[in-house]
Design a protein around this nucleic acid. Structure first.
Length: 473
RNA sequence: GGCCCCUUCGUCUAAUGGUUAGGACGUCAGCCUCUCACGCUGUAAAUACGGGUUCGAAUCCCGUAGGGGUCACCA
């Protein structure tokens, strides 16, 4: 163990910029932040963009913005720098290569030249023979100098670590795979980057999701092989869908951008996220970030996987609106949230030609402001697909395309939706009307693509998922 | 399936061997009220199961069941 001198507490959140800012990132950030602040430590934001194919600067920016929106600020990060930078893993490649070389030199890692095809083959065979899947050690004793670098996991014994909430966890080394540490594109995998960065950034406590427990032995092994002290581990229970599976966008809104769009206050969402694994001693339900920081105790984190049930969030949000806002504040909030110049400027061109009196505006534009536009599913059933099953599958595929669409503008929507019709052999007229019903709740609206673009990705996806839900009933 | 983690009202949770098992959301009922909402009051609702240990178990131990995670050149 290291010196007994009081050490500065340093924790981090390491989001991967590969999609929408996730509510789970907010949740884990909150707990990390609270722990750090309460101990007078530092909360660090590190962008884990080691997946070249999926990472994007847009996503990174969205994550930063969303975290700021929530009210969580970091002491060190890619945007503000800090003493242990850079804070973007793609800018630390040299360090990983250097470090992994040490492992190769000491024999704790080795180069592997197996092709993806061979790996798939091995896997297939293992599956067929009902053997545990994993790398078969083909290159373990070869002395390659190219390909990927793998961890040389001890064949026997077990690796033990302590989770602050669960106590000792032991896993047989035979269960631990010869994990890839350095990919063939020269980028590190999570496992390598995570250990190297946590070490060089002086991270003292790793507070992360429970999904990481089973790969923690790899991390412990890496610390041992590098000869470094491991930080303390705290694994938080995972947020769940109402069926208890890990929270997912299929079954729940999970994008922080959705919550912002949908009119939730960041204070309320953060407060609610606090409830997911923590409770105040005095039973207080409503609290500020500062109060949470003060009250937070690692030992009081609960372990059962909390269902991310929005009902209580709604109630909390209502209380914030009612109790924390004066009438004047409420006015400016509504103006900003619902009737911003920016939003109105996009809507007016679409409805202007239809309007004869100011009040007509509401007639034509109501769906731009409503929370829900659900109608009879008959409105969006397709005559050409009479079976319910295929129809649901079709819509699921469609919604997935829409969710992934970037940028979300008139032209890309047009291209995507037309392409979808062609691929599925559908009449555009029929599908477009169905979508119109789903996203606006009306038969007559401004042109669909423009309308959808203005509504935005979050509203469209939510409304379509809701409509699909009705269809399933 | 192997390994690992978890298990108190429908949901979020409190109770760190001794409570009529508490609170909150939601539900339902009542009050308030021109309606609705808010607010207030009240109601129903849980220790997964089986064995131990103990004077005494939601709490400790073992087993079973259920749920979850993980088994990638994704994090």
């Amino acid at each position: 163990m290291s010196s007994s001198k009081a050490q500065e507490i340093r924790v981090r959140i390491g989001p991967s910029p590969t999609g929408d800012p996730h509510v789970g990132t907010g949740y884990v950030s909150l707990f990390n932040y609270a722990f750090a602040k309460q101990q007078g430590g530092k909360f660090i934001l590190r962008i884990e963009d080691t997946d070249q194919k999926r990472s994007s600067p847009e996503s990174e920016q969205a994550i930063l913005d969303s975290l700021k929106w929530l009210g969580i600020n970091w002491d060190e990060g890619p945007d503000i720098g800090g003493p242990k930078g850079p804070y973007r893993q793609s800018e630390r490649l040299e360090l990983y290569r250097e470090q992994v070389q040490k492992l190769v030199d000491s024999g704790h890692a080795y180069w592997c030249t197996c092709t993806p095809e061979r790996l798939a083959e091995v896997r297939k065979r293992q599956l067929a023979l009902k053997q545990p899947t994993g790398y078969d050690g083909h290159c373990r004793e070869e002395n390659h100098t190219a390909g990927v670098v793998r961890l040389r996991t001890p064949q026997d014994g077990q690796t033990v670590f302590t989770d602050a909430l669960r106590g000792e966890i032991k896993i047989d080394n035979s269960e631990v795979d010869d994990q890839v540490l350095l990919k063939s594109d020269g980028f590190p995998t999570y496992h390598l980057a995570n250990i190297v960065d946590d070490h060089f950034m002086g991270i003292t406590h790793v507070i992360r999701g429970e999904e990481w427990i089973s790969s923690t032995p790899k991390h412990i092994l890496l610390y041992q092989f590098f000869g470094w002290d491991a930080p303390q581990f705290v694994h938080l229970p995972l947020l769940r869908n109402s069926d208890k599976s890990k929270v997912s966008k299929r079954k729940n809104p999970v994008s922080l951008e959705y919550f912002k769009e949908a009119g939730y206050l960041p204070e309320a969402l953060l407060n609610f996220l606090g409830h997911m694994a923590f409770s105040f001693q005095d039973g207080r339900e409503m609290y500020t970030l500062e109060e949470f920081v003060q009250e937070f105790k690692v030992e009081r984190i609960s372990l059962g996987g909390p269902v991310f049930d929005l009902k209580k969030l709604l109630w909390l949000n209502g209380r914030y609106l009612r109790e924390k806002f004066s009438d004047t504040e409420f006015v400016s909030y509504i103006q900003k949230q619902l009737f911003s110049d920016n939003y109105l400027n996009q809507i007016i061109p679409l409805v202007k030609e239809r309007v004869e009196k100011s009040e007509d505006f509401l007639e034509y534009a109501d769906f731009f402001f409503k929370a829900s536009v659900l109608t009879d599913p008959a409105n969006y059933s397709l005559k050409s697909i009479t079976e319910k099953r295929p129809l649901i599958k079709l819509y699921e595929a469609l919604i997935e395309q829409i969710e992934a669409l970037r940028p979300f503008d008139k032209d890309s929507l047009q291209a995507t939706l037309r392409g979808f019709c062609e691929a599925e052999g559908l009449k555009t007229k029929e599908l477009f009307m169905a979508i119109r019903w789903m996203v606006t709740g009306k038969k007559a609206t401004p042109p669909l693509f423009e309308t959808m673009a203005v509504l935005g990705r979050e509203r469209c996806r939510t409304r379509m998922r809701q409509a699909l839900g009705e269809l399933k009933k």
